[in-house]
Simulated scan of single mutants.
Amino acid sequence: MPFPSPGHPAVEAYLTEGYDSVVGMSSRFAASICARLLRLQTEEGVSGPIAEIGAFEGRFFIALAHALDPGEVALGIDIFEWPDAGVKDRFEANCLKHGIAPERRVTIKADAGAMAPADLLKHAGGKTLRLIHIDGEHSRAALTKDLALATACLADGGLLVLDDMLHPGYPTLMVTVQNYLEAHPEIVPLCIIDRETIVAATKFVLCQRSWFERYQTRMLEIFKEQLWPLGADFEPHWCMVLALDTRLAAIT
């Protein structure tokens, strides 16, 4: 099954020529889909900055930043201490090497879970965020805090992208997501981006309920070659599943 077009020549070039050279575990399939979702937002009149919680060395961050319109900025948030103190310098160097100039990004060395929404919005120039990718500490407590921060800073029409969902190494994160969805009925799953491997794991994309039909209508056409036929049942909410392998199990 082919990868979907990311909808941006700069993203396409980076995914083809540079993505695998940046240390990280994020899926190229997911990066292509999220870049295309940013273009879809632009087409639907949603604009503004984006943020990644857990930027690490910049693999996924660079793809997202290339998908932004002129004047929009990407915020990279990380404690930048793991696996060593040089990770922040490598993040900055990777951004420069792959075409994300300093004026197009803001590097924030901080624990996102300890940030107040006002602090994050200040870094974003007072603007709410149209996409927030959460790939921070993989614990229930940390994800709960990151979701609270992201929800408070999300723009109308914004998207929350959650990394390493359904990962066998972090099985309890789904409990946090389910608790969050029950506490925030205004937010629903928009799609699941299936894994490439155990390392390049599944992502959930969430949106405001008021935007679900609007986005879904467009996405069913944009990603028609990547649609897994049965979709995902969140009881009672249904959303699409985007996958490289869209086969159903054979019944014999």
Rank of each mutant, 00 (worst) to 15 (best):
H66R: 02
A110S: 14
K88Y: 06
L149Y: 11
P117S: 03
G113P: 03
E72H: 04
L121V: 08
I187A: 03
A114H: 12
L160K: 02
L68E: 01
L173N: 02
P171V: 01
K88M: 15
V161A: 09
L147G: 00
E92Q: 15
P70E: 11
G113H: 08
T128M: 10
L68H: 03
Q178P: 00
W82E: 15
N94A: 06
K88L: 14
G86A: 15
G158D: 08
Y170H: 12
H66L: 06
V87N: 07
G158L: 04
D163F: 00
F80T: 06
D135R: 07
A101V: 13
A142Y: 04
H133A: 09
G125W: 07
A67C: 02
E186T: 10
D156F: 02
W82S: 14
E103A: 13
D89W: 07
L166I: 12
P117A: 01
T172L: 10
T172V: 09
L162I: 10
I108K: 09
A74M: 13
P185C: 02
D89Q: 15
T172Q: 12
Y180D: 13
D119G: 08
N94S: 13
A114R: 14
R104Q: 15
A74F: 11
P102K: 04
G126N: 08
H167I: 04
A183G: 08
L173A: 07
K97F: 01
G113R: 11
G126S: 04
A150V: 08
